[in-house]
């Protein structure tokens, strides 16, 4: 369980993170989503006590990070896979980390085995490929067998095989009952990995909700229906309270019904004896919707958030 309360970071007149509050619950993967520069990494560094917040605090199972006796045993984090001395072997790197938190040294071999680095454990970490470095970073996070795990952009620069491996791995960790927070700037990536989302833009919380709910809200669902009896169907749909887009003169037999499912429209058409030539669901692209929600000059609002709507994000940097 992670609780962030009113987290704020100011660099001079720039506000990198602005009054950010969210909670991350155990047993599922939570995505920490936002475009590049939204303050995700700064937030993670503040969570780990590396950067001092201007205001606010973060609690891990009720305690701030800096008050944990053996922090690696409570919180495992991969913030940057390059935080390894290039002339130190993977084994030596994990060994000193284990020693620092009174973790038995056999655990080093276990985590190396888990991430598949046993064969190269004694080689200098500077010669590792990006994928190997990322695996070493994950081994570091797992070292203390912590109940809480945090990963900052873990799939960045990985090949499809590596991405797949990390995705499955994080889901397995969550299934074991751990709290897993993963940051990413790709909604499509998070849609496949995370069940819950904490969405930030320009250092502010946009929403915290389920991934499905976010995707549904972000990409307004519409149904396209083509029928020779278009005008008649428009009336029936209107009478049932569906919003139908105005007719497009170039395609007089096609209707676009917003906020509806193909099930609803199809059942209604059958009930009323309509002939349908086409019935399909239309979805806006995830990336488009995400950009719209996190963009700087757009007012934003999502269904599940009780945040004040109507405040332009552009106001956050003054």
């Amino acid at each position: 369980m992670i609780e962030a309360v009113g987290l704020t970071k100011r660099y001079g007149s720039t506000v990198a993170v602005n009054d950010l509050s969210f909670t991350v619950k155990p047993g599922r993967v939570t995505g920490f989503l936002g475009p590049n520069g939204a303050g995700k990494s700064t937030t993670m560094r503040m969570m780990l006590g590396l950067d001092r917040p201007t205001a606010g605090k973060v609690l891990f199972d009720g305690k701030p990070y800096t008050e944990l006796k053996h922090p690696l045993r409570t919180v495992g984090a991969l913030v940057d896979a390059k935080w390894v001395h290039p002339n130190r072997s993977a084994y030596a790197h994990l060994k000193w980390m284990a020693r620092s938190n009174d973790i038995p040294v056999q655990r080093v071999d276990e985590v190396l085995e888990t991430v598949g680095l046993s064969a190269v454990a004694k080689r200098r970490a500077g010669g590792f490929s990006l994928g190997m470095s990322q695996r070493l970073g994950i081994a570091t996070a797992l070292l203390g067998d912590p109940g809480i795990l945090m990963f900052d952009e873990p799939v960045n620069g990985l090949d499809p095989e590596g991405i797949h491996w990390i995705r499955r791995f994080m889901q397995r960790l969550a299934a074991e009952g751990r709290t897993v927070l993963v940051s990413s700037h790709l909604l499509s990536e998070m849609a496949q990995t995370a069940e819950e989302l904490v969405v930030v833009g320009r250092g502010r919380l946009i929403t915290q909700c389920g991934t499905e709910e976010f995707v549904n809200n972000a990409t307004a669902a519409a149904v396209t229906v083509r029928t020779p009896q278009a005008e008649r169907l428009r009336e029936v749909l209107g009478a049932r309270g569906f919003a139908v887009a105005p007719a497009d003169p170039s395609q007089p037999d096609t209707l676009s019904v917003s906020d509806a499912t193909t099930d609803q429209v199809g059942e209604l058409a059958a009930e009323q004896g309509f002939v349908l030539h086409e019935l399909s669901a239309q979805r806006g692209s995830l990336e488009e919707a995400f950009m719209r929600m996190t963009g700087q000059d757009v007012e934003f609002r999502t269904g599940s958030s009780d945040e004040q709507p109507g405040e332009p994000l552009a106001a956050t940097t003054n």
Binding site: L50, V84, P86
Partner: peptide, 15 residues
């Protein structure tokens, strides 16, 4: 330690 970022790994392990 600052050059290679291991200082952050260090402070992460020992705040």
């Amino acid at each position: 330690e600052y050059r290679f970022g291991t200082i952050r790994a260090t402070f992460q392990a020992m705040p």
